[in-house]
Write a protein that binds this DNA or RNA. Sequence first.
RNA 1: GUGGCUGUAGCUCAGCAGGUUAGAGCGCUAGACUGUGACUCUAGAGGUCGCGGGUUCGGAUCCCGUCAGCCACCCCA
Length: 434
Amino acid sequence: MQKIAAPRGTADIYPPESERWQALEVCVRAIARRYGYGEIRTPTFEATELFVRGVGETTDIVSKEMYDFVDKGGRNLTLRPEWTAPVVRALLEHNLLAAGPQRLYYVGSIYRYERPQAGRYRQSHQFGVECFGFAGPEADAEVIALANDVMRENGVPVKLALNSIGDELCRPRYRRVLYEYFAPHRDFLSAVSRERLERNPLRILDSKEPQDRALIDAAPTMLEVLCEPCAAHFAAVRGLLEGSGIEFVVDPGVVRGLDYYTRTVFEFVSAELGAQATVCGGGRYDGLVGSLGGPPTPGIGFALGLERFLMLLAKRGDDQSDVPVGIAVIALGEEARWRTVPLIATLRRKSGATPILADYGEAKIAVHFRRAERANARAAVIVGDDELARGEVVVRDLAARAQWTLPQDPSADVTAQAVLAWYAALPSAPPAAA
RNA sequence: GUGGCUGUAGCUCAGCAGGUUAGAGCGCUAGACUGUGACUCUAGAGGUCGCGGGUUCGGAUCCCGUCAGCCACCCCA
C-alpha cells in the first residue's frame, strides 16, 4: 500500500521537539497574562467574506493564499490565514467592546497556500496579542514592550524596526507622492518593482533588488508626508519606547502587507532566518473594527511566528530538555514485572512532577539501562528475582553509576515513599562524566 | 504561481561513464559477559533505490512525468 505522507508544507511535532513548543507556549502565555491579556480561541475556519473584507481583497493573502472551500451546505469558508480579523469578528459577535477596552492574546495555527521555504509553511503557528480601545501612543508602546519581553526573556538576538505608514488621510497622499517620484524613473526599476509601481508603490520600499537601492534611498519617506496628528503620534511612540529602554531603529522600509494597518507598524527581524527575516510583525489598525461593521474602535497588535522563533532558539542552543529527570522502574523477569506494577502506580500518584518511566520489555539489564538513559531518566529502581527473594529493591543513580538497596515493604506506599525520599536527596545536576 | 538543488536501510550518506546476490557508519536484535550501561569482537534482522512511464538484452544509474523535501523569487509570521 502507498504510504500516506503529511500534506505539503505541514509538519508533525513530536518529542523532543514538542517539549520545546510547550516551553515556548508556557512562556508567552505567562508574559501575556502578566500584561493583563486574556486568551481568545476562535474557530479554525471562518466565512471567506470575513477575510476578504478584513484583510483586503488585493492583498496576496486573499488573492492567492487562502485555503478556501465550499462545505456540504454550500457555505464559502476558509481556514484562517491570520488571527486579527477573526478576533475582531468574535468581539463584535459578542459585543465585548461594550464593556470597554479589551486585551486579548491567542496561540494557534494559520493556513496559507504558498510554496514552502525556510521559515514558511502552509500550516504555521502564531502567538499574538490585540489591544482594542486605546487610540493613544501608550497602547503602541505597551504592545511593543510585550513583544520585546518575549524576545528578551528568551535571549534571541533581534532588531526592532519601527515606522509609521500614516492614516486614511496621509497614506493615500504618500502613495501619490511615491508614484510621482518613481514614475519618471520607471525604466531604471527592476521588473518586479515596475509592477509594484502600479499595484502598490509602497512595496517598492522593501525591494530586495540591488538596482532599486539608490532610487529607494533617495525617495521621499512617509515620515516627511505624515499629517500633523500622525506625526505627533509617531513621535510620542518613539519617546515612550526610549523612556522604557527599548531599542529600535526607524526604518521607512517597514511597510507591512495587510490593508488594515494604520500609523505605527513594526517588525522584529533577525539575520539568522534566511529570506524570512521577520519573526514578529504588527501595527495599529484603527479602521478595521469599523470596516467590519463595529463601532469605530482603535486597535493595535502583533503576530509572532512560532516556527521562526523556535528556529532562533535552536540556533542559540543551550536547551534544557535533555537534562536527565525521573525514575525508570526496571523489572527483570515476568514475576518481577507483574509484582512491580503496583509500585509504579503508587510512585506515579506520589511523585509530583517527577516522571516515572516503566519499561515492560523482556530484556537483559544492560538493555534496560541503555533505554532508561535514552529516555533521559536520572535514576532507576531495579527489581528482579533476587530482590524479590530478599524483600529489597535496588535504587541506582544512573549518572553516577552507583546503587543502593532499600527494603521492600509489604505496603507499596511505604516502598514508594522511601524511593522518592532517596531520589529527592540526589544531587540535582548530574555529576560530570568521567 | 516561477526558478535552482535533492529523494538509496530507523538516521547520516556512499554507489550512478548502465552489467552477476545494492553497500558503509550509527542505531536495532542476539551472543562473547548465565543481573550492570563505555569500549571491543562475532553473528543477525532491516531496502518495491519516492512513485509512474519510457529508452535498452539489461535501469538505483539515462530520459519524461508526478509527488515530496530544501533554497530563492513573489509575499509574509
